[in-house]
Structures are given as C-alpha cells and as structure tokens.
Amino acid sequence: MTERVIDPAALVLLQGLEPDAEQLREDEAALVRAARAGNRGAFGDLYERYARVVHGIMLAHAPAQVADDLVQDVFERALSNIGGLRDVNTFAGWLIAITRNRVRDHFRRNMASEELPEVAVPANAQPRAEAAAALEAIRRLPEAYRETLMLRLVEGMTGPEIAARVGITPDSVRVNLHRGMKMLREALNP
C-alpha cells in the first residue's frame, strides 16, 4: 500500500509555505505510479488533489447542477485509462485534457444547454440570485480568467495552488486573477 504523503500544496494553506515544485512532482509521480498499478488509495489521493481543479474548470463551462456528475465521470475515465498513461509526470495535463474533452462531449450531446441556466443554487449560497448572477458573470469572461477565478473564488484555491495544479506559472495566475477580477467588478457593477 502506498504511504499517504502530505500534499505540499496544502502546506500553503496550513503554513503559508510556497509549494516545492520538485517535491510536488515527485510525490505526485509516486501516486500516479501506484494508481497505475491498481492502488485505489493512491487514486483517491489524486482525486483529493485534483477534484477541485476539475470541478472549477467544469463550472467555468457547464451548469452547476451537472458539474458534480461530470467530475465523477472525468475521474472514472481517468481511472479506466490511467494504465495507458506513459509519463507519470504528465498526469495533471492529461487529466485536464480529459476534463475539457468531457465538457465538449457534454455540449455536443446537450446543445440546448448552451445558455447555462442556473436552476440548482446551493442552499448555503446567499443570496441565491446574487450567487447565480456572479457565476454567470464569471462565465462570460475570457477563458483564462474565467477558469482561474472559478478555482480561486469558488473552489477556494490559492494562486500558488492553482499554478502548481494547472501547470502555469504563479505570475500568470496572478495576472489572470487581477485582470479577471477587474473585468468581473465591471460586469457586476456597471
């Protein structure tokens, strides 16, 4: 059984530390190797690390009421295909590619859903209408800003976490967040 390792990205929240990119890669590669060999615990750890990323990307494109199902579907696909992942260091990019393909599949099958109506607002998002409006406003932003803001404002990830998970530089994340937030403010307070 694979020893559970502390997610270095979580240390950012716990201790205010910047994640060690090299350590992160090594830990993750070990998890991917174990998951590839059939270790469910390792795959569960990968899910814990990446579920918010996949969910955030889903929310940037698909209605909230189907996002959870699509996340489950993405990880089921990953689970059944992880044996074919040759380079364990490419897991994040590979998973995000599956996510984007799943979003495209969803819209191919549900052409009528392109308007992304929000009918299932969580009870704890108050006030509901405001939350739905904010979500819609983020979705109208350019893709790079929209996904980064979903990961930051909805999923609660920090900029360094987003950078480590999505595979872009922290500076790019910072820029996307600030530019996206500026556009969002303008959209919400015209």
Binding site: A51, A134, L153
Partner: peptide, 16 residues
C-alpha cells in the same frame, strides 16, 4: 464573492 460562491465548491467524494 468568496462567501457568495463558496456554496458551489466541490464536495462530493469519488465513488469507485
């Protein structure tokens, strides 16, 4: 916005 949108956060566990 964090408080407003936190209700949409991913919470569901993976079902093998």
């Amino acid at each position: 916005l964090e408080n407003l949108l936190g209700g949409y956060r991913q919470q569901r566990p993976f079902v093998f």
